[in-house]
């Protein structure tokens, strides 16, 4: 565990000067990569280490985004408080819905579909609720006092990257510490064989609920940061199925059930959409028919996903880590 934390700190130190070296457009890509990383690390805790395949992480992301946005817009509170409140709300939602699902022994596909249904219900509720702006969504104020307390900076300010980096490091550290503890070992034992773990005296349901609650809280941090960074949340952007997919993709491409896989997956995926956008804007001669069309970025994600699932089921990191052993 100590070794992993040291590696994490080294990664943090290495990444910190990035926004000073990159042009602003690239910095936005780096921030997006960090958001991917937060979501994927959180998803990986519940679904990779906990074995509870979630297809509804948008629920936790959206609760974080909406809580932060609401507290900022309505009460003028600092986004930091919004992030904390969002973690509490998302964790509570995760624990209650997770308890229902685990208590009624939903397994595999059923569990995944139940998480999906919960996320969709939140999306539909937000769509029709005046309190949170309905289909229009919530816009956060652009002007106002700048600084670290209000998390409001000029567009392209390196501070955004540092905040995201800090939050990501905190999320990964939480997962590392949890996995290194007795609870983490028990959690993996439950994933491997529920019956055997229960026979050995492990409280199965309690550990599964713990994983869901922590995963939900960490995912909500990404959502809260999303609201602060893009200054806008809407039902589809916060609770839509594509958000759940964004939590899954980096983890699967990097390596499910590994600590570093989701980070690598995020670092690979985030620049892809930028590459796709560039190709579509100024396509090379033989691809000129792509001029101005959309969809190419997701096609690249999809092909990568299919190739990884079929050819490297352990993901990029998992595959290489195994080969080099």
């Amino acid at each position: 565990m100590i070794r992993r934390l040291v590696v994490l700190a080294a990664i943090g130190v290495a990444l910190a000067p990035l926004p000073l070296l990159l042009p602003p457009a690239q910095e936005a890509v780096a921030v997006r990569a960090l958001m991917f990383a937060m979501m994927a690390v959180a998803w990986n805790l519940m679904s990779g280490f906990g074995g509870l395949f979630s297809f509804g992480h948008a629920a936790y992301f959206g609760l974080g985004a909406y809580t932060t946005a609401l507290l900022t817009v309505e009460l003028g509170l600092s986004p930091w408080l919004g992030l904390l409140a969002g973690m509490a709300v998302a964790a509570l939602f995760g624990v209650v819905t997770g308890y229902l699902a685990v208590r009624y022994r939903l397994k595999g596909a059923y569990f995944a579909l139940a998480t999906f249904a919960f996320a969709e219900m939140l999306r539909l509720a937000a769509l029709n609720s005046e309190l949170v702006g309905g289909a229009v969504g919530l816009t956060l104020p652009v002007t106002g006092e700048q600084g670290w307390w209000t998390l409001r900076f000029d567009v392209g300010d390196p501070a955004y990257f540092w905040v995201a980096l800090l939050l990501t490091l905190a999320c990964v550290a939480t997962v590392i510490v949890l996995l290194g503890s007795r609870a983490g070992l028990n959690l993996v034992a439950v994933r491997e064989d529920e019956t055997a773990a229960a026979a050995a005296g492990v409280a199965v349901v309690r550990h599964q609920i713990l994983a869901i609650g922590v995963s939900a809280a960490l995912t909500s941090v990404a959502g809260g940061f999303y609201a602060v960074y893009y200054l806008f949340v809407s039902p589809d952007l916060a609770f839509g199925p594509s958000v759940s997919i964004q939590a899954i993709l980096p983890a699967v491409i990097g390596g499910v059930g590994t600590v570093w896989g989701p980070l690598i997956g995020a670092a690979v995926l985030a620049p892809l959409s930028d590459v796709a956008a560039t190709v579509v804007r100024t396509p090379p001669e033989f691809l000129s028919f792509l001029q101005g069309r959309s969809g190419l970025d997701v096609i690249m994600y999809a092909v990568l996903l299919i190739v990884v699932v079929l050819a490297m089921p352990r993901g990029l990191y998992g595959g290489f880590a195994r080969r080099s052993r």
Binding site: A112, R293, G295
Partner: peptide, 20 residues
Amino acid sequence: AAQLLLTLGIAMLLENALLL
């Protein structure tokens, strides 16, 4: 998970091929 993700990838591919 592998089967679910594979069909998800196929869905994303088809949808966005139509979009393209």
